Simulated assay, not measured.
Amino acid sequence: MKKAVILLSGGMDSTTCMSVAYKEGYDMYPISFDYNQRHKRELECAKNVAEFYKVKQHKIIKLDNVGGSALTDFTIDVPDYKGDSEKIPVTYVPARNILFLSYAVGYGEVIDAEAIFIGVSSVDYSGYPDCRPEFIEAFQKVINIGTKSGVEGRPIKIITPLINLTKAETVKLAVKNQAPLHLTTTCYKGGEKACGICDSCRLRIKGFKKAGIKDPIEYEIEIDWRDNK
Score class of each variant (00 low, 15 high):
Gly67Val: 05
Tyr29Val: 05
Ala104Lys: 07
Val49His: 01
Glu134Tyr: 03
Ser122His: 14
Ile116Lys: 02
Glu114Tyr: 10
Tyr35Trp: 08
Gly25Tyr: 02
Lys82Asp: 15
Ile136Arg: 07
Val55Met: 02
Leu43Tyr: 05
Lys40Met: 07
Phe52Ala: 07
Lys54Asn: 15
Asp77Asn: 15
Ala21Cys: 11
Tyr103Arg: 06
Met28Cys: 04
His39Leu: 02
Met18Pro: 10
Phe100Leu: 03
Val20Lys: 07
Ala46Gln: 02
Ala115His: 10
Glu44Gly: 13
Asn48Gly: 12
Glu109Ser: 10
Phe33Gly: 00
Glu137Leu: 06
Ile136Glu: 01
His39Met: 00
Gln140Lys: 06
Glu24Cys: 04
Lys62Cys: 02
Tyr22Phe: 14
Val93Gly: 01
Asn36Val: 10
Asn97Met: 03
Gly119Ile: 06
Val20Cys: 05
Arg38Tyr: 08
Cys17Gly: 09
Ile136Asn: 03
Ser19Val: 13
Phe100Lys: 08
Tyr92Met: 07
Lys56Asp: 12
Pro89Phe: 02
Lys47Arg: 11
Phe135Asp: 00
Asp130Thr: 03
Lys87Ala: 11
Asp80His: 12
Ser69Trp: 10
Gly106Cys: 07
Gln37Tyr: 00
Ser69Gly: 10
Gln37Glu: 00
Phe139Pro: 00
Ser102Glu: 04
Val66Met: 12
Lys59Met: 10
Ser126Leu: 15
Ala46Leu: 02
Asp64Ser: 14
Ile61Lys: 11
Ser32Cys: 02
Val90Pro: 12
Pro129Thr: 07
Gly119Leu: 06
Asp73Ala: 06
His39Asn: 09
Asp84His: 09
Ala70Lys: 05
Glu137Pro: 08
Val78Thr: 03
Gln140Thr: 01
Val123Ala: 07
Asp80Gln: 10
Lys82Tyr: 05
Gly68Pro: 11
Asn36Glu: 15
Met28Gly: 12
Thr16Cys: 13
Gly68Tyr: 08
Gly68Cys: 01
Ile118Met: 13
Ser85Trp: 08
Ala50Gly: 08
Val93Pro: 05
Pro30His: 07
Tyr107Glu: 08
Ser14Pro: 05
Leu99Ser: 14
Asp112Tyr: 13
Ser121Ala: 14
Cys131Trp: 01
Phe52Trp: 12
Ala46Trp: 00
Lys59Asp: 15
His58Asp: 02
Leu99Gly: 11
Gly67Met: 03
Ala70Pro: 15
Ser14Ile: 09
Asp34Met: 03
Phe135Asn: 01
Lys62Leu: 04
Thr16Ala: 09
Ile118Leu: 11
Ser69Tyr: 13
Arg38Gln: 01
Phe117Tyr: 15
Thr91Asn: 09
Lys47Phe: 11
Lys82Thr: 14
Asp84Lys: 11
Val110Ser: 14
Pro133Thr: 04
Arg38Glu: 03
Asp130Pro: 03
Gly127Cys: 06
Ala113Pro: 11
Ile118Gln: 08
Ser85Lys: 12
Lys56Leu: 04
Asp112Asn: 14
Gly83Ser: 06
Lys23Phe: 11
Phe135Thr: 06
Ile61Asn: 09
Ala104Cys: 03
Pro79Glu: 03
His58Gln: 07
Ala104Leu: 04
